Amino acid sequence: MYHQVGLPAPKGSPYRGLTVHPSDFRRQMVWLKRLGYRGLSMAQVLPYVRGERHGKVVGLSFDDGYRNVFQNAMPVLDELGFTATNYFVARHLDGSNFWDQPKGVPHSSLMSLPELRAWVASGHEVGSHTLDHVHLNELSSELAAYQITQSKRELENMIQHEVSAFCYPYGHYDNNIRDQVSNAGYTNATTTHRGLARMDDDLLQLPRVTVSRSTNIVRFLQKCLTRLEDNKRRSR
């Protein structure tokens, strides 16, 4: 799970750790490649999660649709033959991370529609992060369902392709919201729960491994390629 790939905000900025330096991102992806792993989008990694296919793969996901991912991460992915899923806030293309700014998080631009379409043209996947990056569990059932369902429709209209991947904003959801995601037609959804995906996981409640600014290459490989995170998950 990544968010931004760019130069970090000034020291003391909230959530500064969610921006991974471009050189660190490149190093992480190159080491995956060297070790024989392939980075895959959610659509492409699901057969491995379900046990239908076997191989050395890592699912790559980005939350929010930041422009710096288009600028700094996509060229690396394309160079290495990797694919990834980016979860877009459907009604805020070419906007910014407005949801974080009341907390003092610096402004960061989101991809435009042409950039989103270029993302798809390069073989990457578009997922939904709702229409407006809302706290779904704080909305009425009707409004939550609208955010989930309408974002899928609008993104599909933009790219003329099915959108089957969803990501819960802030990681907030409950059983009702999970069922609404299923009813909207998504086949998978990611959370902020820590851990590696297993065959017995609910595909609408998939865990992920957070990669932050301070994640050095050794820790990155430990998190992504060993059962360390999974063992921690089992112990909770």
Score class of each variant (00 low, 15 high):
A43Q: 12
S151E: 04
A189M: 09
L221Q: 01
H133R: 14
D202Y: 03
W119G: 00
M158F: 11
L228Q: 06
V209R: 08
V5D: 04
M199N: 10
K103I: 01
P114F: 09
N231L: 12
I148F: 07
G55M: 02
L196F: 03
S109N: 15
M1D: 03
H3D: 10
H54E: 15
M74S: 04
I148W: 05
G104T: 07
A84Y: 01
P169Y: 11
I159M: 12
K103Y: 09
Y170E: 08
P169C: 14
F62Y: 08
L143R: 15
Q160C: 14
D64T: 11
R34Q: 07
A144N: 04
Y146C: 07
V126C: 10
H161C: 12
T187K: 07
R91T: 10
R194T: 07
E115P: 03
D174E: 13
G6V: 02
Y66G: 06
A118W: 06
L155D: 06
L32H: 07
M74L: 14
E229D: 00
A145M: 05
C224K: 04
G6N: 15
S122H: 11
R34A: 07
L203T: 00
R27N: 04
R16H: 03
Y146K: 15
S122L: 10
N231C: 08
S214H: 13
H92W: 10
Y48H: 01
H135Y: 07
R233H: 06
K103D: 08
L80C: 09
V5C: 05
Q28P: 01
G65L: 05
A165N: 11
H107N: 14
R117E: 08
Q147F: 01
E52Y: 08
W31V: 04
A184I: 03
R236V: 11
G81T: 03
K152T: 11
S61A: 11
G51M: 13
F220N: 02
L155F: 04
P114T: 11
C224E: 05
T130L: 13
M1P: 00
N188H: 12
V76R: 00
L131A: 09
Q4V: 05
F98G: 12
S164F: 05
K152N: 12
R153L: 13
H133Q: 13
F98A: 14
Y168D: 15
P114Q: 14
S140E: 01
E229A: 01
Y186A: 03
D64R: 13
Q101W: 02
Q44V: 03
W119D: 01
G6D: 15
Y2C: 00
A121Y: 05
H133A: 12
T210G: 02
M111G: 06
K11S: 10
H172R: 15
W119F: 02
L143I: 04
V120H: 00
Y87F: 14
